[in-house]
Design a protein around this nucleic acid. Structure first.
Lengths: 241, 241
DNA sequence: CGACAACCGGAATCGTCTTCCGCTTCCGTC
DNA sequence: GACGGAAGCGGAAGACGATTCCGGTTGTCG
């Protein structure tokens, strides 16, 4: 697993509908260099759309050639825009990941602070189940580190509130919740096909496990940010099932 | 994922050291047809040994040709004995699985019946962590259904005892424990490389989650045997990491 | 309108798994 | 102890899929 470094393709966003770039300091803006020729941009979108379609149909079990032909381009064109097939799949994960963050923030907006942690965990699981992502974890470092950081930050706030309200065992740390969510998503991926909603049972169990009262102390230290980085980096993203 | 049906290669055991097959009813015994020629049997062992060696070194990231050359045979010979590379890897998992069953039975032999469930779960996790199996679940149907059935049976006994002793929430069923163990093994696989013992923390959490008291009822039905079959059949075994 | 960098398609390359086939070796018999 | 043939053997060839390359094409900008 060589980690997919790469910066690249930051722009490519649909761009604001507004006409004016406004800032007259155009001299320095690097955005210039990243603008794609319009046919290229169109093809990029087509490739992405074709890949998403195929991913929803067959969960990663498709060839690059299929993506290309469904997008009406040659494989070379796919590779000009995405260095590897996995990079293409990573890109598919991005909007999904963004949706997760939105969901997390929505949970943080829940009226009752004490409830937010549970709402958060359940919403994450629900979102994961809905999005039809099979057999993948989607936290890979390459996709969107800033989003991930924001996610963890939100989680920290929520956990602090739950703790203040005495709704969670005192020895639970933010990354613990991350691990719990991560592990439920693994279960969702694994069971969704065989038994569509069964994961809810184990989610209930996990949620219960975080409640305070009668527990024995945890002997092992929690996951740190560094561990977390390693952990997600080692997980397949939307890779083949 | 076409499930790897296949019966095959039941014999191949090192065979009892004793000299006499004893049973004179040799007429019907099918064992006859399954005996390998002695050079073939030797090669089979060599291939298996080479594959295990490579697996421990590189975790599945090796080619069939490497296995063959390390075993001192041609690839054709590997394929004569194992229909696919995955079948070969499955075979590697078998002794590991057998060890798990032994561990399970040992837990059932624990002097204090009320403790057995926890001992069982912890022992399973420990065993999984020790065996150096990375990024794989090993419950695939193809490997050893009878072993699996025995495992589940043992688990059922242990759970009944724990329940009788009031050491476990009343709504937990045997396959629930299976799912819990399965999910901790996933966590072990995922974290072992980055943070060797961190999984113990989450194991503690999971073990705690099964204790009785104050819990809310579980709204979703538990996993059934059929679900379990599907679930394990869909999991990668020792597949590439 | 012309120059040219960015693009394009798709054939060729490469790494792997899997199949095939002519030659070889054990096993049971005569 | 030699013989016949099934079971094995090695490794070349085939199949597949990702990735690379390159000659021809096409927006873009002056």
């Amino acid at each position: 697993m060589t980690s997919v470094a790469s910066a690249s393709s930051v722009a490519a966003a649909p761009a604001a509908a507004g006409p004016a770039p406004a800032s007259p300091t155009s001299a320095r803006t690097p955005a210039r260099a990243e603008r794609l020729r319009c046919d290229a941009a169109r093809n990029r979108e087509r490739v992405l759309a074709a890949a998403l379609e195929l991913y929803r149909e067959r969960g990663g079990a498709f060839t690059v050639e299929e993506v290309a032909s469904r997008a009406g381009v040659g494989v070379g064109t796919v590779y000009r825009r995405f260095p590897t097939k996995n990079a293409l799949l990573d890109e598919l994960a991005r909007p999904f990941f963004e949706q997760l963050l939105t969901t997390a923030q929505a949970a943080h907006g829940h009226p009752e602070p004490a409830e937010r942690l549970e709402v958060f965990i359940r919403a994450m699981a629900e979102q994961h189940a809905i999005d039809g992502v099979r057999s993948g974890r989607l936290w890979d470092a390459a996709v969107a580190r800033p989003l991930r950081d924001e996610y963890v930050r939100t989680l920290g706030l929520i956990l602090a509130e739950a703790r203040a309200a005495g709704r969670v065992r005192a020895d639970v740390e933010p990354y613990d919740v991350g691990v719990v969510v991560w592990s439920i998503t693994g279960l969702i991926d694994a069971t969704q096909h065989a038994a569509p909603v069964i994961w809810r049972r184990y989610l209930d169990l996990l949620v219960d496990s975080l409640r305070p009262g009668g527990e024995r102390p945890l002997a092992t230290r929690p996951v740190t940010q560094g561990d977390w980085e390693d952990l997600v980096a080692a997980s397949p993203v939307l890779r083949l099932g």
